[in-house]
Design a protein around this nucleic acid. Structure first.
Lengths: 230, 230
DNA sequence: CGCTATTGTTTCGGTTTTGTTACACGAGTC
DNA sequence: GACTCGTGTAACAAAACCGAAACAATAGCG
């Protein structure tokens, strides 16, 4: 990643333009915003490789913006380098703990800053997707598309997999057949509601050898629910 | 990585013991050395997860020790955090450029230091462009573009090689045909998705004599995956 | 230029998956 | 207890999907 798209979030025009200048010198594609709101908008549009963000923003703490980004599936992989006044030494710790890739104190030493930016971009993305969804003995590896129950791999048909994953990620909630069709089947598919029953049954019989079939619960008159408690 | 094995390389007893104390407080397994020579020996024996190394060593520049480590296949993955007197501002840049994972200036702010150590350990190993990629009996030499299975060299066509290497370096992940086309074929090439099937098949038949064809797994409805576990 | 290795396409056939339907069962209600 | 509605179960047929193989196009090489 030699040339990157970088977003600077800093309310202070002076340091913002100083940073922007240094990065543009190196050929990076730089955008600038002054608060968290416009930063989020810019992130959605530009999908930058790196966000350089000050800890003190007018509308939201920089660390909270960071948490927001790390919490979203879509932008979790984006690198984030936080900055802050050197006097506020707590910021370093809280920024790094919240998942910042690096931190640079102000006033900025441009040589160091650029070296750290480079290092950030060179590194493989850190905060990768959350892989596993778990419930009791059941584990679903969403990246490897694998399901294991009590350590044994269980092979599921595609639709069974999607159904189980959906129910597992939304435990303790009842879904009507119609709702399940909406979420697990294609939105426009015209499939009879009894189809859901059949798939629930198939899932149950697959989970039965491990005594996990009870987690798929029928709610008479309403639909189905996944829950560990009876 | 909550508890780590950490090696401190610093000629100055004071800062060395200060650092060691802070790390031990957190429960890490800490060793100490004072120069590059004993550091290399210690690295070989202890295989630490992280080396904290000062830039000014009596027998060798800290940055050169870093380069040595990064140059070896065996220890490339070790994290390295460099330290140096804050006045010597060049050190930051040269350390990061040489592949340090992070840098902290002295005098050390212990809170910041520990947060940065944590961040280092949390991150996936960075400098992993190792010469060899391995999985089970399969070894891919990325420099010599050679593949051996159980000691026997296997000759692969270019595309087969790229496909195998890609899947091997991303084990246990399912890739759709589209994704594979994106990664293994050229980004804009308009190639039919079934082409992937054919290449998977060819790879399988090449691996079959060594009973490794099972590692290339079909995930019905989703794509393919390389995995050592069935 | 001609040969060969590589690469992509297509077709065919078998298997798995999937939705439907028919029927049995069982809980709740009167 | 009998009736009814909703659900469980099993069998079946259609559709989707993948593996295998044959074939065509292309590139590389002498």
């Amino acid at each position: 990643m030699t040339l990157a798209s970088i977003l600077i979030v800093d309310p202070d025009i002076k340091s913002r333009s100083q940073i922007a200048y240094g990065l543009r010198e190196l050929g990076h594609d730089v955008s600038e915003t002054h608060d968290a709101g416009s930063a989020l908008a810019a992130v959605r549009v530009k999908k930058p490789d790196l966000m350089v963000c000050d800890c003190a923003l007018p509308d939201l703490a920089g660390v909270e913006l960071l948490s927001d980004v790390r919490g979203s599936d879509e932008f979790r992989a984006m690198r984030v380098l936080m900055t802050s006044d050197r006097s506020k030494s707590d910021d370093v710790v809280s920024a790094l703990k919240s998942g910042a890739d690096d931190f640079v104190g102000k006033p900025i030493n441009m040589q160091e800053f650029l070296a750290r930016v480079d290092a950030c971009l060179r590194r493989p993305a850190n905060h990768t997707e959350s892989r596993q969804v778990r419930a009791g003995a059941i584990t679903v590896d969403t990246v490897g598309h694998r399901v294991s129950v009590g350590g044994n791999f269980v092979s599921l048909a595609p639709r069974e997999y999607r159904l189980l994953l959906f129910l597992l990620s939304n435990q303790d909630r009842v879904y009507s057949r119609k709702q399940l069709l909406l979420h697990v089947w294609d939105k426009d598919s015209s499939v009879g509601p009894r189809t859901v029953d059949v798939h629930i049954r198939r899932l149950r019989s697959l989970l039965e050898p491990f005594e996990c079939d009870g987690y798929l619960q029928t709610v008479r008159g309403s639909g189905y629910r996944f829950s560990l408690t009876v």
